[in-house]
Design a protein around this nucleic acid. Sequence first.
RNA 1: CGGGGCGUAGCGCAGUCUGGUAGCGCGUCUGCCUUGGGCGCAGAAGGUCGUCGGUUCGAAUCCGGCCGCCCCGACCA
Length: 437
Amino acid sequence: MRMSQYFLPTMKETPSEAQIVSHRLMLRAGLVRQTSAGIYAWLPLGLRVLRNIERIVREEQDGAGAQEVLMPTIQSADLWRESGRYDAYGPEMLRIKDRHDREMLYGPTNEEMITVLFRDGVKSYRDLPKNLYHIQWKFRDEVRPRFGVMRGREFLMKDNYSFDIDKAGAIHSYNRMFVAYLRTFARMGLKAIPMRADTGPIGGDLSHEFIILAETGESAVFCHKGLVDKDILSRKIDYASDLQGIVNEWTSLYAATDEMHDAKAFEALPESERLAARGIEVGHIFYFGTKYSKPMNAVVAGPGGEQITVEMGSYGIGVSRLVGGIIEASHDDAGIVWPEEVAPFKVAIVNLKPDDGAVGGACQKLYDALGAKGVAVLHDDRDMRPGGKFADMDLIGIPWQVIVGPKGLAAGKVEVKNRKTGTREELPPEQVLARFG
RNA sequence: CGGGGCGUAGCGCAGUCUGGUAGCGCGUCUGCCUUGGGCGCAGAAGGUCGUCGGUUCGAAUCCGGCCGCCCCGACCA
């Protein structure tokens, strides 16, 4: 993408409504614009990040055996009357009426709808297990939206639902998602720690929140230090196998949010192993048995012809929240520092002198060659002074900056700067291609 | 939902107390200059002062209603 043509409204100053760093940076870097309290429009650069996060979530869900569907944002009130949650959910649910005066709602979650889809489509134990996910916008009419996209009213969420014949199967489904979540967040460059959680209004008796550590996190968290650096990506995962061992590795070490905190157990750890910090919840998984399947009659025929109520679990990742969460976890004074996997572009070419034919030609050549290799590259070909370009590039946080100026070029070199470490290298352009190809 | 605050140019703000017809910085546009970290000079455009009503010869300014947004708390994925 050529920056001179890109819709990328960056700002030098911070709009006064933004208080936390991720919100400030998202506005300044031209990722989003607020349109109402807790509701945001995603601009091109922000949308690329959002799509990258979706992509990783999707790959990991598929890899763990979940299947993608897409359910609507608007649901019928009758559906929610069936589970008994229409009245229970309260004012956080946005209720609307259509032209025929039918009661509808903007979905805050999809347990009811998925249960009906499952119930109508699956009649035999032979079709189990099933795990269905979708990535869709949700609306929860928060009393007080805040922190930018991290607590918006409209937000993009991956939610999925598992259906098993018995509790053992349901626990296996739960464990699969547990491991898939560890991988998902690790791939985004995050250290997400699973913590024993309160099941809240969704209900159930087994639940973990996945929390990333950040100073500005909403909740206080306490855990064993060993959890921070545990690595999942280097392991080969067989989702068909018993995953309980891996789950136990993570759950045997102490980790809890403040509402589940057991000060005694925590203080029993050696002081050097205790970590008390703040965190942002980016995922939440639940096993809830027959809480929905029973009232909504989601049953299948068992081997002996008997009717068996299915065992369910639900699993959520706050996709749009992650954009803010990643920034909270990865930024510096100059701006955002995107982890490569989610970065809107991997490489940025900074043309220091656009009206110099040689410099422009070298930039264009690099741009075309990198593009041909499938590298996402942003070309700052704007007619601006270098200072502003550097500032913008640091602000939007592209991992690699290839800086091309007349001086270096005369010596046959361009400069490659790493956004995260600040290290710079002078290389001939061909080597740049080799590096990022 | 309790408490507090704010709404004036794209962004940040002054002006409101004490009523007299709107200003600063940044950004934007034009020209010149400059070109390795938001450079300089000159010129220009851009605002029904959130909205409705009231008081007044006259309202950004005073009074009232409404709307919107933010912060703290409670609540919450």
